[in-house]
Computed example of a mutant assay.
Amino acid sequence: MTDLLTMVSAAGPLAGGWGVHGLWMRRRLSAARRDPLSGLWTRAPFERRASRLLARHHAAVVLVDLDGFKALNDTFGHAAGDEAIRASAASLNDALAEKRGAVAARLGGDEFAAVVPLEEPFTLPWLLNGLHGAFTAPFTYR
């Protein structure tokens, strides 16, 4: 009996360590699937989620490319471009916050995508107007 208690007490910290390691790994994998600048999904996880969503629901697929992004980077520097990416991602998140099941991503560079479930097709113009307003709102860079 004491041998069993000795083994269990020795294995406890090891098992606890593996539990913490597993949690840490899950968080790291989740972080790797997100774009570090925008916090949005990257292409591969977005495509998996979008595919599942499109298989189950009527949805709008929205692709966004920021006009003048290269000129912004060339004129004001990469820090300004990074801020434009962050502001655009925040606008996209805000515009989709109440759209249950929506998934958004930064595909790369200045390209974004979203898939938004639509309960009624007639709501599409309101969705697109809201997204247009969110993306075209000015942002401040200092």
Score class of each variant (00 low, 15 high):
residue 93 N to M: 07
residue 140 T to E: 05
residue 16 G to K: 14
residue 35 D to K: 06
residue 88 S to L: 01
residue 113 A to S: 08
residue 92 L to C: 01
residue 35 D to F: 04
residue 67 D to Y: 07
residue 2 T to Y: 11
residue 39 G to H: 01
residue 75 T to R: 15
residue 117 P to S: 07
residue 82 D to Y: 12
residue 49 R to L: 06
residue 134 A to E: 02
residue 116 V to K: 13
residue 20 V to F: 12
residue 51 S to K: 12
residue 92 L to K: 01
residue 63 L to R: 11
residue 71 A to N: 08
residue 20 V to N: 07
residue 89 A to L: 05
residue 91 S to C: 15
residue 88 S to N: 02
residue 10 A to N: 15
residue 60 A to T: 07
residue 53 L to F: 14
residue 105 A to I: 02
residue 37 L to H: 09
residue 80 A to M: 12
residue 134 A to S: 14
residue 87 A to C: 08
residue 52 R to I: 00
residue 62 V to M: 13
residue 77 G to F: 13
residue 28 R to Y: 09
residue 32 A to Y: 05
residue 88 S to W: 03
residue 73 N to P: 15
residue 67 D to K: 13
residue 33 R to F: 01
residue 55 A to Q: 06
residue 97 A to G: 04
residue 75 T to K: 13
residue 13 P to A: 10
residue 62 V to Y: 04
residue 120 E to M: 07
residue 82 D to K: 07
residue 76 F to V: 11
residue 65 D to I: 04
residue 117 P to Q: 06
residue 29 L to H: 14
residue 83 E to D: 13
residue 88 S to M: 05
residue 130 G to T: 08
residue 89 A to F: 03
residue 52 R to C: 07
residue 17 G to C: 10
residue 14 L to I: 10
residue 127 L to N: 08
residue 17 G to R: 09
residue 27 R to A: 05
residue 93 N to S: 14
residue 92 L to V: 02
residue 79 A to T: 11
residue 91 S to I: 00
residue 93 N to G: 13
residue 38 S to N: 06
residue 70 K to V: 00
residue 18 W to P: 02
residue 86 R to M: 03
